[in-house]
Design a binder for these strands. Structure first.
Length: 750
DNA sequence: GACCTGCTGCGGTCTG
């Protein structure tokens, strides 16, 4: 320690200070300095700081000091650390081991890969810190309901890592509900919650997510670590016309593995050659993360770069990384990034965005504008962590080529404009706020079943009070909860039944679900094949994407031929080959925030130049702005197009879809496309009149509007909901009916 | 026109 000893340091317990001495830290980090008094004072705290700023220690140094001062010797766990990832638990265990040893506090990993005797031992003599996933915690409550009060009665605090990953999600609702159930079971009014997060758009909303209903009482701690600056570039490219469709009708099987089909022509329509040449040139020989967007793009891009490596007879340094690849393959890439000095570029989806420890990379590249400013910020934080080196991010954005008679939207270069809008938002220090909680009826079904199992039965009024008044399901009122219970008890579900004295019990249908191994997670997953080469599992492939023996596929950045499909065992056997088609993964579109789309319009209206654009991108922006003026979009929102019209509301995905739906409900043939709505067979005046009507009428009933929409069961237990309940979920979570008059009004005023 | 995450307890067999 230097002479300028931080005041926070002095307030820590003796063993904690000793540990800090051993680490030879020169001083505490800004966020740690601020967190110490906040956590020592007790109460709920949100700690937010950029990646690698020392958030974990910011929470645990004062928490361990608190344990030292308490010294009750009572049994029961003292601290609970909840993480969304097993990999993060393993990292944190490594990181906290010596600190806990110094403090003589037991540290226990608890997740699905940890052996059951370790868990049994911890249950028998509960003490110290437990690092756990929400699913393992759920299993503990459901299977050992009777032990809960004993295990957690001396709990000092709960630390929630990657808080932002839980906000507004099914898993987040589950976690809040579990923490609430622990408080109730132990008879504690509240157990301190400490949320750790990357910088969030709106800290107050994050605080509300940490302690529903009492966000105002949460202490906010924001780290102010300036980092080493950011170097950022947006590079423009032109897409090549696809000259051949993907080889669906390809003539039978290629005769030999040496036949090389024209698959490159298709893959070039996803990834132009000029772009892959630049990607190769800028990443080769260094350590990079390349975020390619979708799993298909990861495969196409990894395949292309690996081939370029082979062509130049260089050792391979490009590797694919996404959620459908096997754990072993992914860990090989992570380990190589972390521990191997050889140049390595991981071509990834969002898998490498969260806090898994992969050390520092030289640069980050991204294909396309991405879906959120928050994720852009997170990605930048993956480089520039070493002293004196700025973070480096290059965005590679391709636009469609101009064609006579092409779609007017092609010339607005909306991907490039979106990329610029994202960067402008980032520079202005804006990022998406957490989304507001929906009804989450699927997760409420789950929590009702879990609660019955935990207590062996529960009265409806108790369940309502616990889950919906004290717990996180506050958008569900008594009437709606009663309807949900009736639905769960109905003949078609039989999830629950009621005993003579009114106690809710698990029904015949519920038994099957709750006894199953996959009851504990609340998110839905697709059924999949396993892709196997000899004895090695390469990864998984969705059942819904049909494949046939003899077909070729790019997977894990390599090319394979399918030799056998075992539908019963759900195994696809492959062998290496020289040809390969891009794989197919189903997916739903991402939602872009209103403010990003508003900023896009501002970028198109403005004449500002942006230093971070390369020549090609700057030229494409000029062309897009010219076209924007030509179409008079600077003062019009509705323009004629062919036999119909194009609408430009400049709102985010959810509002765009709501307006489309409202127009469909008024008998227009409308569909949303690339930030616009296309309506066929109508006139500009006809649409303007309708917009006028919408603007001046009260907002339509969301449930009625949602009735026009297909109601796919998206969440895990949605299939148990009645049509009517599903409509209410859709109205609340997927559309925004209240904003319709305002959107229409703004378009008329434009 | 997108991504990601997670999992018990038991009974069986094998190894040191």
């Amino acid at each position: 320690m230097t002479n300028s000893q931080p005041s926070g340091f002095d307030r820590l317990s003796k063993p904690v200070r000793q540990w800090i001495w051993q680490q030879k830290w020169q001083s505490l980090r800004d966020v740690q300095e601020k967190a110490i008094p906040a956590i020592l004072a007790g109460g709920d705290v949100v700690i937010s700081a950029r990646t690698a700023a020392g958030k974990t220690e910011a929470a645990f140094l004062p928490l361990l000091s608190r344990l030292e001062a308490k010294e009750t010797g009572a049994d029961g766990f003292a601290l609970l650390y909840v993480s969304p990832l097993k990999a993060l638990i393993n990292d944190q265990h490594r990181r906290l081991e010596s600190l806990c040893e110094c403090c003589e506090v037991l540290l226990t990993k608890w997740h699905g890969d940890v052996s059951s005797n370790v868990k049994a031992r911890a249950r028998k003599r509960p003490s110290g810190i437990v690092l756990i996933t929400p699913e393992s915690l759920e299993a503990l409550l459901v299977r050992r309901g009777g032990e809960v009060s004993h295990l957690f009665s001396n709990l000092e605090a709960v630390v929630i890592d990657e808080l932002h990953a839980f906000i507004g999600t099914e898993r987040g609702m589950q976690m809040q509900s579990i923490l609430n159930r622990i408080e109730v079971a132990t008879g504690r009014d509240r157990i301190d919650r400490i949320g750790l997060s990357a910088t969030l758009g709106d800290m107050r909303l994050a605080a509300e997510a940490l302690r529903p209903g009492c966000g105002d009482a949460v202490t906010l701690v924001e780290g102010n670590d300036p980092g080493n600056g950011v170097r950022l570039q947006v590079r423009g490219y032109l897409l090549e016309r696809p000259t051949a469709p993907p080889a669906v009708d390809a003539p039978e099987e290629p005769k030999s593995d040496n036949d090389i089909p024209k698959e490159d022509e298709f893959s070039r329509s996803l990834l132009p050659k000029a772009m892959s040449d630049d990607l190769f040139r800028l990443t080769r020989g260094k350590r990079n993360l390349l975020f390619a967007g979708s799993r298909v793009n990861v495969e196409v891009c990894a395949d292309r770069l690996r081939n370029m490596c082979d062509d130049e007879r260089l050792p391979q340094e490009f590797f694919a990384h996404h959620g459908s690849l096997s754990k072993a393959i992914r860990e090989d890439v992570e380990t190589r990034l972390r521990d191997d000095p050889r140049p390595t570029t991981a071509v990834a989806t969002t898998t490498l965005e969260l806090g898994i420890d992969i050390g520092d990379v030289d640069a980050v590249a991204q294909i396309g504008p991405g879906n959120s400013v928050a994720s852009l910020r997170q990605r930048i934080g993956r480089s520039g962590r070493r002293a004196g080196r700025p973070a480096t991010l290059r965005m590679f954005v391709a636009a469609p080529p101009f064609e006579r008679g092409g779609h007017p939207l092609d010339r607005l270069r909306l991907d490039l404009v979106q990329a610029i809008a994202m960067v402008e938002c980032l520079i202005a220090n804006w990022c998406e706020p957490p989304i507001k909680a929906g009804l989450h009826l699927s997760t409420l079904i789950h929590q009702t079943l879990a609660l019955i199992l935990q207590y062996g039965g529960v009265l409806p009024a108790q369940a309502f009070k616990l889950l919906c008044i004290r717990g996180p399901f506050r958008n569900v009122d008594r009437e709606l909860f009663a309807e949900l219970l009736r639905c769960m008890a109905s003949d078609s579900c039989r999830l629950i039944e009621q005993s003579g004295n009114g106690v809710l019990m698990i029904g015949s249908g519920g038994e099957e679900i709750t006894e199953s191994y996959d009851f504990y997670p609340v998110f839905a997953t697709e059924q999949e094949y396993r892709i196997v080469h000899e004895t090695r599992t390469l990864g998984t492939y969705p059942l819904s994407s049909p494949l046939a023996p003899g077909e070729t596929i790019i997977f894990s950045g390599r090319r394979w031929r399918i030799v056998d499909i075992d539908d019963r065992a759900r195994v696809i056997a492959v062998k290496p080959t020289r040809a390969g088609n891009p794989p197919h993964f189903p997916g739903r579109g991402g939602a872009i925030h209103d403010y990003v789309v508003e900023t896009m319009r501002a970028v198109l209206c403005s004449t500002d130049t942006y230093q971070y654009l390369d020549q090609q991108a700057a030229r494409q922006l000029d062309e897009a702005r010219e076209r924007f003026k030509e179409l008079q979009l600077d003062h019009k929102s509705v323009i004629a197009h062919g036999q119909g019209v194009l609408l430009f509301p400049w709102v985010g995905t959810r509002k765009l879809e709501t307006l489309t739906l409202a127009l469909i409900a008024k008998q227009f043939r409308a569909s949303s496309y690339h930030h616009s709505i296309e309506i066929s067979d109508c006139t500009v005046n006809g649409v303007l009149e309708t917009l006028e009507e919408v603007a001046n009428a009260p907002a339509p009933d969301g449930v009625v509007l949602a009735g026009h929409l297909a109601q796919p069961a998206l969440a895990k237990f949605d299939s148990f909901l009645s049509r009517e309940l599903m409509c209410r979920v859709t109205a609340r979570e997927r559309i925004d009916a209240e904003s319709l008059p305002e959107i229409a009004g703004n378009m008329l005023g434009a």
